[in-house]
Design a protein around this nucleic acid. Structure first.
Lengths: 338, 338
DNA sequence: GACTCTTGCACAAACGTTTGCAGGGGACGG
DNA sequence: CCGTCCCCTGCAAACGTTTGTGCAAGAGTC
């Protein structure tokens, strides 16, 4: 029922191979024949069969993406970037939600591997070993995860963290809390690393809590611990947790930002519109998705652009209404003698 | 490089066709041979080539989904349901963001059509005519859009709207505003229809505003209009708009819920966690996605279950903190004489 | 006018599967 | 002991493309 290359060939009075060439390597056929073929193809509404094509070429024209949690708007942001960039190059996108589960992630990539030219894994939970195994199966590009010899787009959240520390320091904060995200997460390690470096430089003490689930509920749970820690500011692994913290602080009657400053990470839409608007670090989600696809396609199509297999994306502090001068209710504002 | 069915055949000392049968129609081969084949396949890590398979069978094992706006958590909820259900039946999922653009939607479905067994279109912006054309190209299942002879999962938002009206009426509201979403949207029409019916029955007057963009910004813009309408409650097309309304009301010093009640639609995560928590109607997002895939696969695999081509999903009012007794600052609480 | 070179096209093989058809062999009944 | 039937397996065709190879005709050169 569907129209094949043979139908077009018959209508244009040429052989199927000529049709194929007219449609792809058009310089190999005479102008007049090419026009005839294109006209015939258009009239019949010919669409090449991707299965047949990929069978012979070994390429599919598809890429895959797996994210840890679709409910987190951060990942839908990168999803948008990925899809936009892929579409621009004529690739279709397979998508899957790994649900923060390493074995699900691996299974999903394996399942996709035969029908994609490559997959971008977004902040994967899988182990390095697993990732290497998958990289042997298909081309891989990582987002916010570093692994030798595997191309990756990385958001420089350590730098964002430095900006946060400088901001808080300028506001007089000397003793702050950091609520960790998943312990295995590259992003969390990066943020913590940036925090440590900047904090010791500024002689600021920071107490760690967690790891917590990087979700609203995780923030709610974490808030009480942080509150007991005698700090003047709480830095959260991400915005979702920060929103949870805000909610819990409100419940407990702690005024933000006057009694407690809170800062998040990601700059989700909701960070801008919640009350009070959240001070946070903007992560380039769509740009990250696009960059990952750039790297993937560069590898797949062999169009290395000499920029190497890594892309570093910058992050920026966005000051809103959840940070203010350090609370004076804790007058000396130093770590309590525990 | 990749291992083919011939490799397995050689290792198991059988012909390729036997391997094929052992893997799919296993009752056609003797038990001992089947075991030998399966063992060989496992040892070699054989994975069938989907392109070759789909070339001969005409089926791909893939489905597609296109949504209007990935930034709206409603659709990511649906996406989760779709992917979970698809995976359960061994289907992989192509995904695309139509960006609320009818022509983009159509182009995306056309692009996918050759490599999927069907696609679910989620609250599409495309016209009926366009949808019919696409239904001729591939199997279609709709979510929150009704079109004769095309299977669809529909959320009964008219019923949810009735519950909202009853709730507001009980609180003493007699004059309310409805902020419309996109005029072409089936969901908006349904909600409006439910609203009209319930309101006239209850002798409640409702003034319409919009259409607005179904986003935060749309709500911000709409709030001022509604405020000037002399109403005691604002019903929004969806939660995103409701959040925009809340934000704008706060800016203008209007106390919610005491001076103005606000209700949304969808029950996004943020409706539950914003301040004050939003009264809204819960939409079964994941269930809707699953139901749509059910319908699609029933059509594709010919496993009609006799339940007909439509699924109706129920919706429920969730009362939180943005609705209260009608404001008395507008003492007579009836439509101002315009 | 004969040679070579180029251009434009057709032929056929190949990609990895599935599946209709046929054949071989064993079991069973007569 | 022979015929029939059934179970299992192999052979080969087919799916719709792409692409290497070969051939024919025309253009250019001497």
């Amino acid at each position: 029922m569907p129209v094949t290359i043979h139908d077009v060939a018959r209508r244009a009075q040429v052989s199927p191979s000529t049709v194929s060439r007219a449609l792809s390597a058009s310089h190999l056929v005479r102008g007049t024949t090419r026009d005839r073929v294109l006209a015939a193809a258009k009239e019949l509404g010919y669409q090449p069969n991707p299965a047949a094509r990929s069978l012979i070429t070994g390429r599919t024209g598809n890429i895959g993406i797996v994210v840890p949690d679709l409910n987190n708007p951060f990942y839908t942001g990168v999803l948008r970037g990925v899809q936009a960039r892929a579409r621009q190059s004529g690739y279709a996108v397979f998508f899957a939600d790994g649900e923060e589960d390493p074995v699900a992630e691996e299974a999903l990539v394996r399942a996709m591997s035969r029908q994609v030219d490559g997959v971008v894994m977004c902040a994967p939970f899988a182990s390095d070993t697993q990732l290497r195994a998958l990289a042997g199966l298909t081309s891989l590009a990582l987002l916010n995860r570093r692994l030798r010899d595997v191309p990756a787009a990385l958001m420089d959240s350590a730098s964002g963290m430095r900006q946060v520390v400088d901001h808080l320091y300028a506001l007089g904060h000397r003793h702050v809390a950091y609520l960790n995200g998943p312990g295995s997460s590259w992003s969390n390690r990066e943020r913590r690393r940036g925090l440590r470096a900047a904090a010791t430089r500024a002689r600021m003490t920071v107490v760690d809590f967690g790891p917590f689930e990087p979700k609203f509920e995780g923030g709610v749970a974490a808030a009480d611990l942080a509150l007991a820690g005698g700090v003047t500011a709480i830095m959260c692994y991400n915005d979702l947790m920060a929103l949870g913290v805000l909610s819990r602080l409100a419940d407990r009657g702690v005024a933000v930002p006057h009694e407690m400053s809170v800062v998040g990470f990601d700059n989700l839409l909701y960070a801008a519109v919640c009350a009070p608007p959240l001070t946070t670090v903007a992560m380039p989600m769509e740009a990250g998705g696009r960059a990952a696809v750039d790297l993937l396609l560069a590898g797949v199509e062999g169009t290395e652009d000499g920029a190497g297999p890594y892309r570093e994306l910058t992050t920026n502090l966005i000051v809103r209404a959840t940070t203010a001068a350090a609370s004076t209710s804790n007058p000396d504002n130093h770590p309590p003698a525990v």
